[in-house]
Structures are given as structure tokens and as C-alpha cells.
Design a protein around this nucleic acid. Sequence first.
DNA 1: ATGAATACTTGCGATTTGTAAGTTAGTTTA
DNA 2: TAAACTAACTTACAAATCGCAAGTATTCAT
Lengths: 124, 124
Amino acid sequence: MSSARARTTAAELAAERRSPCPVACGLDLLGDRWTLLVVRDLLLGAERFKDFAASPERIPTNLLAERLARLLKHGVVEQTAAADGSRHPAYRLTAKGRALGPVVIALREWGLAWEKGTRLPRTP
Amino acid sequence: MSSARARTTAAELAAERRSPCPVACGLDLLGDRWTLLVVRDLLLGAERFKDFAASPERIPTNLLAERLARLLKHGVVEQTAAADGSRHPAYRLTAKGRALGPVVIALREWGLAWEKGTRLPRTP
DNA sequence: ATGAATACTTGCGATTTGTAAGTTAGTTTA
DNA sequence: TAAACTAACTTACAAATCGCAAGTATTCAT
């Protein structure tokens, strides 16, 4: 057999993507109604499946499972031991995932400034 | 007849939204694979239907029409006379739409930093 | 006036979404 | 240690959305 490389070739990347535009590429991964909410929760400290499922938007569990798997696959999230020592899976942002902070913040600021009735959660 | 108010009530807003979170609210409008690409093109100076349709991602024309209508409805975009004087419809960002600049830029920077093979278009 | 562009609209199969139940593994309690 | 309970998914399916391909109406250029 030929030496199979693990890393993705430029040609393979190009084939899966709509364009080389970084915005389009970002949307290929993040462009839906739920994914950035999962990232938001991770930024706010959510770690476990039930944490995401308990958010006020009530993401369906099948979609949550699929989104977590996709974020894992794309290196935005990693599975770690839970902070409380339980054996249930825990999820954390990688450096790539934490780098999405500015995206979520920009969206938050836009919503607060332009969409009536939006507000930050009480965090006393 | 009773005096109907044009503006949306708080109760009506709450009913349509998944939560009062500004991120969730933003995603209700922008959370798909195409909408922010239309905004990107507007930020780059696209004005007419054919401009958006000509972008490298090749948005289907039915989706483009629907997205433009939605952005109009939500005050992100407005219809104006075209800069070149033609009678074809022209679209421009409103202040609310221009305020999405930081969102698109944050996504662009993230893509450039973390997604291999992405690059800005040549603009000589 | 006529042909080419432009700006949509329509139809339809394929994919994705959202709802509601499972099912399996891990944790707590008696 | 064995129920009982909670957490983490999985599955099934109807409904909505997507994306492709044509078609139509309006505007522009000659």
C-alpha cells in the first residue's frame, strides 16, 4: 500500500470548501443556528452534555451530539476529564476554540446594540 | 378599529425568539451558511443581485432572493437607487448592517488564523 | 425593435431540522 | 450491592429547508 498521509492535502481542502474565503470557510463549520451557542456555553464554562442541553434555547439532544462531534473533529473542542472527577465525558475549548471568543463577543455586542429585548444573563 | 401599533411588543419578540441572549437572537437572523456571506459582499461594495450571485461560493438565486428579503425585513439592508443610475434594484447596508462589520471581521481573522488554505481575495 | 442581461420565481428531490421516544452507561441511595 | 436515578447519547420520523435546474418578467444595449 502507498504511504497514506494523515494530514489533509490542499486539494482535498479545496474540494470540501465553497471557496478559500476565511469567512465562507468559517461558516462551513459554524454557519447554523446552534453551533455558536455551544461555543458560547463553552466560553461561559459549560463542560458536560447536560450543561449545554440545559441552556435556555433547548438544543435538541441529537443535534447537540452531532455538533459536539463535529467540533471535536475540527479541533475546536477536546474531550477531557471532568473537573469534578466524574467519568462522564467533559468538553473543553482548544486554543482554536478559544480563538472564537471574538466572534461570539462581536455577535453579542451587535445583538445588544441592535436587537430590542436582548440582554445578558444575570450572573450575580 | 383599535389603534394598532406598528412596533413589535416585548411579548411578541419573546415569542419568536429562542431566548433573550443576544448571541442566540443574532443567530436567529444570521445563523446559516449564506447570510453572512451576503453581508460580507455588501461590506465589500456589492450592490446588485448579480454581484452577490457572482461571488465564488455561488449562492443559489432562490436563497439569495430570500436572504435579501429577510435582511430588508430586519433592517440590515435597504433598497436604494443604484450608484450607476440603472433601474435595477440596489442593496446597501443600513447602520444596523454596517454594525455587523466586526462580526464578519472576527470570523475572517479566525478563519485566516486557524483554517488552512484560506486567504483574502486578490484586490490589486 | 430585438437580443442579451438581470432579477427574480417555481418545482422538486435531497438533506437537515426538530420532536419524542428509546437505550446504555455512570452515579447515588438504601 | 442492588435498585433507582441521572446523564449521555441514539433512533425514528414528520416537517422544514436546501440546492439544483428551469422558467418568466423586466431592464438594458444596440
